[in-house]
Every structure is written in structure tokens, then in C-alpha cells.
């Protein structure tokens, strides 16, 4: 199998397999020209490394929300207790360029406090 094909199948696998949380990282996969602002309750929050994750409902879809590494979030003043499941938040971030319902978060506003994640 060529490297090209294996990379293509890796992407296909990551999209097809539920819970495969590897198909991101880096800012280059996201469209910084299209800022998304989503307000609502967070679902399935995972306070974890290499970066925090959650889901949120937006425009009829459930979006994967890509947060920052745990140490960075805490350094910026965002704690695990602030973004529990069901907590209403405002997220500003960028959608993936390839159309997958996933956004990388630039800033979070929760309890009236705005935290920059980049």
C-alpha cells in the first residue's frame, strides 16, 4: 500500500469509527476565515490530554469540540469544574475545512468569564 493510500484510509477510518478522536490537531485543518460562535450546553466533556474534548449541538448536528491541553486551560483560568456536562457556554472557534462537524475552540465564555485557549 502506498503512503498516500494509507493516509487516505487513515482519514477514512478516523471519520468512520465512532469515538476515534485522532483526526485533528494543529490549526491548519481548520478554517480560520469562518468563525463559529455557538452557545449551548456542553455534552460529553472530557477533561484530558493531549487536549480537552466535548460535544455541542449546533445547526442540527452534534459537533466535536476540541479544547486545549489541560495545563494550558488551567493556566488561562479555565478549570474542570467550570465546564461540566450540561453547562451552558459560549464557544468561539473554527470549523474543519473538510466539512466534518468539528470545531477547534479559540475562546470559551463561561460564568461570565472569557478564556482564550489558543
Amino acid at each position: 500500500m502506498t503512503l498516500h493510500k494509507s493516509l487516505a484510509s487513515a482519514i477514512a477510518l478516523a471519520v468512520l469509527i465512532p469515538g476515534a478522536a485522532l483526526a485533528h490537531h494543529g490549526w491548519s485543518s481548520y478554517d480560520a476565515e469562518k468563525t463559529l460562535t455557538v452557545t449551548g450546553p456542553l455534552i460529553d466533556v472530557a477533561w484530558r490530554n493531549p487536549h480537552g474534548e466535548a460535544k455541542i449541538k449546533h445547526a442540527g448536528k452534534t459537533w466535536d469540540v476540541i479544547l486545549a491541553p489541560v495545563a494550558r486551560m488551567e493556566a488561562r483560568g479555565l478549570t474542570e469544574a467550570m465546564i461540566t456536562n450540561g453547562k451552558p457556554v459560549k464557544l468561539e472557534g473554527y470549523p474543519r475545512k473538510d466539512g466534518v462537524a468539528e470545531m477547534r475552540i479559540e475562546r470559551v465564555t463561561v460564568d461570565g468569564k472569557t478564556v482564550e485557549l489558543r
Binding site: L7, I17, A20, L22, R48
Partner: peptide, 15 residues
């Protein structure tokens, strides 16, 4: 260990 179940099915990781 942090992501074992996703990694083990990743084609890039298997290669």
C-alpha cells in the same frame, strides 16, 4: 495508553 483504542485502529500508527 492515553489513546490506545483509537491508535490501534489508525492506519498511520499501524504502519
Amino acid at each position: 495508553a492515553a489513546d490506545a483504542s483509537s491508535l490501534v485502529v489508525s492506519t498511520v500508527f499501524r504502519w
